[in-house]
């Protein structure tokens, strides 16, 4: 059985000579797979000028806040924030994302849960944080009445787009729509 390892050892030696790696290192804790992946994802982020981040603890890159300020569409003029909590099983499991404000949106419920397919049923390890962020941005440009989490908002959007628009403005200003008072998110 051990002969296998002599064979492999030769292979490794050849590889090491090419790579300049040496063994017998003093053992230190390694950066975890989830952290490496998040570091890579963060360095690929393209936030443009409508989004920004905040890291409550810069040493913990697995939790941060994303701010979105849509510059077009019905939610233009609002500032929305989402907490990102990335599990240590990332990217096997998707990041946990929640809206911090109570907003009037067909795909976001009153607790801040977000109905975005890639955050749940369509998540794949090849997807990255940028894909999630683009998905969130898209929700503000194209709210979707067919997958409702806030049923009233979805009904309004389906029935009369004009009234839905008015309701969005009312809610963003901190007003009440259908008996529900929303957070002021206008900047």
């Amino acid at each position: 059985m051990l002969k296998i390892w002599s064979m492999k050892k030769e292979q490794q030696k050849a590889e090491n000579a090419a790579e300049g790696t040496t063994a017998a290192a003093p053992k230190k804790k390694k950066v975890t797979a989830a952290q490496l992946r998040v570091q890579k994802d963060l360095s690929e982020l393209s936030l443009g000028n409508t989004m920004s981040t905040e890291f409550p603890d810069p040493d913990d890159i697995l939790s941060f806040i994303l701010y979105i300020e849509p510059d077009e569409g019905m939610y233009k003029g609002g500032r929305f924030s989402f907490t990102f909590n990335i599990p240590t099983s990332f990217p096997h499991e998707p990041p946990k994302v929640q809206c911090r404000e109570k907003i009037y949106h067909p795909n976001i419920d009153l607790e801040g849960k977000v109905c975005l397919n890639i955050l749940r049923e369509d998540w794949k390890p090849v997807l990255n944080l940028n894909a999630v962020i683009v998905g969130l941005q898209f929700l503000f440009l194209e709210p979707n009445a067919s997958d409702p989490l806030n049923k009233e908002a979805a009904e309004d959007l389906r029935n009369t787009r004009e009234m839905f628009k008015r309701n969005v403005r009312t809610a963003m200003a901190g007003g009440t729509v259908r008996g529900e008072t929303y957070h002021k998110v206008l900047v």
Partner: peptide, 27 residues
């Protein structure tokens, strides 16, 4: 063998320097 001209770096549990996103760069 590296030729990394715009490196961002982390150690275990410690963010040393990240160029992006902007807020992390500042911090």
């Amino acid at each position: 063998e590296a030729q990394l001209k715009q490196p961002s770096a982390r150690a275990v549990g410690k963010t040393l320097y990240m160029r992006v996103p902007e807020s992390l760069e500042k911090q």
